Computed example of a mutant assay.
Amino acid sequence: MFETYEEIRQWREETIGSVVDDHRQLNAFHDQLMYQTLRIAKETIESEQGPPPAPFAFFLMGSAGRSEQSVWSDQDHGIIFDGASQCQEYFLNLGAEISHGLAIAGYEKCEGNVMASNPLWCRSIESYKKQIHDWLNEDSWQSLRNFSIFFDSRVLDGNDEFLLKVKRESFSILEDRPRLYSRLVENFEFIKKGVGVFGQLLPEQRQGMKGEIHLKETAYFPYVNALRILSLKKGVSAAPTLDRFEILSYSYPFIEAYENDFRELLTFRLRYKKEAESYEKIHLLPLDRLSKRDKQQLKHLIRRGQQLFAKSKSILKEESSL
C-alpha cells in the first residue's frame, strides 16, 4: 500500500513499460494510479478536516473519462456530492489535494482548469443539474464545450448514480429542444483536415510543431465526436468511445464498420508514442518517422474518421428534424 504520492510516481515509472503496448491494460493502470492518489488525498483531508460532510463521487473527464489515455495525460476531473451547498468548501479542498497529488504522480494540471479544485467542477447533484440547464440555455461556444466535457465523464470512486442523474437531466433537455443538437455538432465540427487534396499528409505549421502531425486533432477527434453526437441523441450515458460503439451499433449498424478503424488508431498511437517523454509531445508525430506503409495507414484512418463524422452529422440532422 502506497503512503505518499512520490511512491505512486515511482510505481508508475517502474511499471508503465509493462502495459504500454495494450490499450486496455494501459488505461486500467492509469485508473489504478489515480485511484491510489485519490485514496491518499482523502486520508489527508480527513486527517485535517474530518470525514466528508456528504456522500460524493470523484469522476474523470476527457481522455481519462473515455478510458483513452496514452502514456502521458493531463488532469480532467470533478466531484459531485449529495448534500447542501455548504459542503462545497470541504470538497474543493479535497479537489485541490487530489490535483496536487496527481501532479506529483505524473499528471499535469489541466490548462483549462477542468479539475475538482475549481468550483465549476465541484458541485452538488442539484447544482450540476442547474449548471447543465444554464449551459444549454446559454447555447454559446464555451458553454456547449463545457457541457461536452462534462458528458464524457465516468465515476472512478463513489456512487455512479450521482452522475447518471445529471446526464439523464441533459437527455431530457435535449429531447425537448432538438435544435440544440445542431448547435452541438457545430461545436464539434472544427476538425483539422490531416490529408490534403493530393492525398498528402498535412503537418502542423505552428511554431515548434513543423513537420509533425497532430494525431488527436486530425485523426482521433472525428471518431470521438461522432460517437458523442450519437450518444447524446440516443441517451447513452457511457463515456468510453469503445463502449459507445458497442451500445450504439444496435441503433446504428453502420458504425460497426468503423470500430476496427478506431481500434487500429489507438494501437497506432501507442506504437509511435509509447516512448514520449512528456505530455506536450504525446499527440505530435513527426512525419519523417513514418514508413510509406504507415503513412498510407494513417491517411486511411483519418479519412475513415471524417466519413464517420459526416455520416453521424447527417443522421442527427435527419432524426432531429422529424
Rank of each mutant, 00 (worst) to 15 (best):
L184V: 07
F254T: 03
P119E: 05
C87D: 15
D243C: 05
F262E: 03
Q69D: 04
G158S: 09
L184Q: 07
R244H: 03
H30Y: 09
I40D: 08
I302C: 05
L227I: 08
P203K: 06
M61V: 06
S249M: 00
I16A: 08
L33T: 05
N159I: 01
T15C: 09
L308A: 07
L38I: 11
G199I: 11
R154M: 08
R304S: 13
K165V: 12
D243K: 14
A276C: 13
G50A: 09
I79Y: 03
L180K: 12
F171E: 08
L38D: 02
Y181P: 01
Y252P: 00
R177T: 10
N137W: 12
L215P: 00
E6C: 06
K281C: 03
K281F: 06
I125F: 04
D288Y: 12
F56C: 08
K109Q: 14
I247Q: 01
N27Q: 03
L290H: 05
E126D: 15
W121G: 09
A64R: 07
C87A: 15
T267E: 13
Q32P: 03
H133N: 14
L144E: 03
Q25N: 12
W141Q: 14
I98W: 02
K129L: 10
S47H: 10
P178A: 09
K317P: 00
F162G: 06
V185A: 15
N118L: 07
S170W: 09
S153Y: 02
S170L: 11
G208E: 12
A103N: 14
P240N: 07
K313T: 13
S140T: 15
F29Q: 02
D160Y: 05
M34P: 04
E264A: 02
E169A: 10
P178D: 06
L215R: 03
K165Q: 14
Q306T: 04
A54Y: 02
N159S: 11
S73D: 07
G106A: 06
G65L: 05
G208I: 08
V224S: 03
G235I: 05
G106S: 08
G17K: 08
Q306E: 08
T241D: 10
L301D: 00
Y258Q: 06
R9Y: 13
A238Y: 07
N93F: 04
I80K: 07
Y272A: 00
T15G: 04
L136Q: 09
I213W: 02
S291H: 04
D139G: 14
Y279S: 11
Q32E: 14
S85C: 01
E13S: 12
I79Q: 04
M115C: 09
Q88R: 15
I315N: 11
A116H: 01
